[in-house]
């Protein structure tokens, strides 16, 4: 892990010193021992602050959107899952490939902050992380904390499809074993919900959506949500009234419309990075919703996980004169 960090810093220094990029987006030390924070370096000196490890859950791809209309080159650090988000942005024509340097990192799984935070003594300062293969050890000033990978990783890591980036101009380290669990079924959770009867399913989602604060965190973190102006933020006359479809009113029907419309907008496009679910302050299982669309797109159109390449278009974004037209 140390070697990866060194490689990353060295490459960032090189890119900035040669003026190949204006800025490198990566991970920097966090506010506490359980996390890191996105870090933006614009000088070679600042590059010394880059870090990497199992506390780097954030998908940094989305930050590119803030610079989409500028003419500067940027570099961004991505894990396997994040790299699909890069392809998402490229395919959606939201960032030109020639202005982008992708710095790939090999990922052995990310620790689930909800699980590890309670184990970390308050005020502990992180001094380093060791990877023993089966266990991540956080070395802090208040002692060594061991987190076995088979219990403390984020749920999405156990289903990981690409722990190495699918797109990278530079790789900061050699491949590492995937954290995916042997023989895990990516559709298991979806199948469970599908098995419920309509009433039960409806009340399950009603219960989830009723908690939504309409804080837009899921949308803001999503690499598939790249609209300049979200449909939900356009000035519909009377936009605060309930009863106007697409209003911002915080009520169950409006929340439902928000989530279902967002779901339709990401069908066949969601790269399954799981960021929406991670950032949701009220723990709505959003990834479950989108995994359902992923499963359906797979069954109906044979679509794979979006973002694996920029070649394959989302099945709902393609038009071909050969398309079956039974419904017409």
């Amino acid at each position: 892990m140390k070697a990866v960090i060194d490689n990353l810093r060295r490459e960032a220094v090189r890119l900035l010193a040669n003026d190949e990029v204006k800025m490198v987006i990566g991970y920097g030390e966090g506010t506490d021992a359980s996390r890191t924070t996105p870090y933006f370096a614009s000088t070679p000196e600042q590059s010394a602050a880059f870090t990497w490890g199992p506390l780097c859950a954030n998908n940094l791809a989305k930050h590119l959107l803030d610079y989409r209309y500028e003419d500067t080159r940027l570099a961004v650090v991505v894990k396997g899952c994040d790299s699909r988000g890069i392809n998402r942005l490229l395919q959606d024509l939201q960032f030109p490939r020639e202005r982008l340097v992708v710095l790939g990192v090999p990922c052995g799984g990310q620790l689930d902050r909800n699980l590890i935070a309670p184990e970390i003594p308050p005020g502990a300062r992180l001094q380093g992380i060791e990877d023993t293969g089966k266990v991540y050890v956080l070395v802090t000033d208040k002692g060594r904390l061991s987190f076995p990978k088979d219990r403390f990783l984020m749920p999405k890591c156990y289903l990981c499809e690409t722990n190495m980036p699918v797109v990278a101009d530079f790789m900061a380290g050699d491949p590492v074993p995937s954290p995916a669990r042997e023989g895990s079924d990516r559709t298991a959770e979806v199948n469970e919900i599908e098995a419920l009867d309509v009433a039960a399913r409806s009340s399950f989602w009603d219960n989830e959506f009723s908690r939504c604060l309409r804080c837009n965190a899921c949308r803001n973190v999503c690499p598939a949500c790249s609209c300049k102006e979200c449909v939900f933020e356009q000035a519909v006359p009377g936009w605060q009234q309930s009863g106007i479809i697409g209003s911002k009113a915080n009520s169950l029907p409006e929340n439902m419309v928000f989530h279902l419309v967002r779901m339709f907008h990401v069908i066949g496009r969601c790269v399954d990075c799981g960021e929406c679910e991670r950032v949701c302050p009220v723990d709505i299982p959003l990834r479950l919703l989108y995994r359902k669309t992923l499963k359906d797109a797979h069954i109906l159109y044979g679509a794979g996980t979006p973002g694996m390449s920029t070649e394959v278009q989302s099945p709902l974004s393609e038009f071909s004169p050969e398309d079956p037209e039974e419904f017409m």
């Binding site: 790249s226 102006e229 038009f319």
Partner: peptide, 12 residues
């Protein structure tokens, strides 16, 4: 003003 230039409308 709203168009993001994603180009989805072009192939459809």
């Amino acid at each position: 003003a709203i168009c993001t230039g994603c180009g989805l409308c072009v192939p459809v």
